[in-house]
């Protein structure tokens, strides 16, 4: 692995750490629509132009190379290890670790830089890819573009994703929801809880529960794994009830999830699933020069 790859990417991560230390976490809300669309277009446009105009320069080759892919994946693992080992949402705000964003790592500049590096490498790898084998070409493109779409939509779509908790009492129309910061917001729909039913196993644990509701004067049933679709970008989920009261629960807790980038993520998932299918069917599918493949010794 070339030393230059380490140098460039090491410097890039250090810069992201300095930004994190000096300005705090990544301002995700500032990237809400339409800024995220503009940022996404500028970013992909720059990469496309750089690929065509400066594709032969050393640092572009580094960015689009296999070594960069490996290093980006290693950094991604390091970032995930922070999330895997360090409990998030700590109230500690003064330590160096806290200032580096390890307790809110998904919105840390360091983690954002890692994701951006991974996406940049993916973009350039796709743009540079050439293959003579048709199936290898399909497999490569489906896997890489699928992953790119998922990362792209999750990354740029995150600021447009909103969740509102709704506490609905029986037969009282509710139009207010509360976001993650407990700030009230007027909903796009009116929700009225008509009835609630819970079934139990013999040991007393709930086997299923469902709520009969009216959404904008339309009757609907909402239960776990069966949300109600309000529109192409919004669904309502049943998340809780008064466990003590059971069937007599006077209220239910619902959650409205607004995710306009939903279908782009789904498209990426379908692409990755098809790519994985080709990976399953064709396997490693290669015999390297200089390596003897028939030297099986039982």
């Amino acid at each position: 692995m070339k030393f230059k790859v380490f140098t460039y990417i090491g410097a890039y991560i250090i810069v992201s750490a300095i930004i994190q230390l000096t300005s705090g976490g990544f301002p995700m809300h500032a990237l809400a629509f339409p800024v995220n669309i503009a940022a996404a277009m500028v970013w992909t446009g720059i990469l496309y132009l750089l690929h065509h105009k400066r594709g032969d320069t050393e640092w572009m080759k580094v960015l689009a190379g296999g070594d960069c892919s490996i290093l980006a994946l290693v950094l991604f693992i390091v970032g995930c290890l922070v999330l895997g080992f360090v409990p998030q949402q700590s109230t500690d705000t003064y330590s160096l670790w806290s200032r580096l964003g390890v307790f809110h790592f998904t919105t840390s500049w360091i983690f954002i830089a890692i994701l951006l590096l991974l996406m940049t490498n993916l973009t350039l790898v796709v743009l540079r890819h050439r293959s003579t084998d048709k199936w290898c070409q399909y497999r490569f493109l489906l896997n890489h573009i699928g992953l790119w779409l998922v990362l792209f939509a999750l990354f740029f779509g995150a600021p447009d994703t909103h969740k509102y908790r709704i506490m609905a009492y029986k037969n009282i129309p509710e139009r207010m929801g509360y976001d993650v910061d407990a700030q009230p917001a007027l909903l796009d729909f009116g929700l009225t809880l008509r009835s609630f039913h819970v079934d139990y196993y013999r040991n007393g644990t709930p086997s299923s529960y469902k709520a009969e509701v009216m959404v904008n004067h339309s009757p609907a049933t909402i239960e776990v794994n069966t949300p109600y679709t309000v529109s192409w970008k919004e669904k309502i989920y049943l998340v809780g009830y008064d466990v003590e009261s059971g069937n007599q629960s006077p209220y239910c807790i619902f959650e409205s999830v607004v995710q306009p980038w939903n279908y782009l993520i789904l498209l990426g998932i379908v692409g990755m699933a098809l790519g994985a299918l080709l990976l399953f069917i064709h396997g490693s599918n290669k015999h390297r020069a200089g390596e003897e493949v028939n030297d099986v010794v039982e």
Partner: peptide, 12 residues
């Protein structure tokens, strides 16, 4: 390769 394909299906 087969295992990764299955893990990918699992994650998706």
């Amino acid at each position: 390769y087969i295992g990764v394909a299955l893990i990918t299906f699992g994650i998706l």
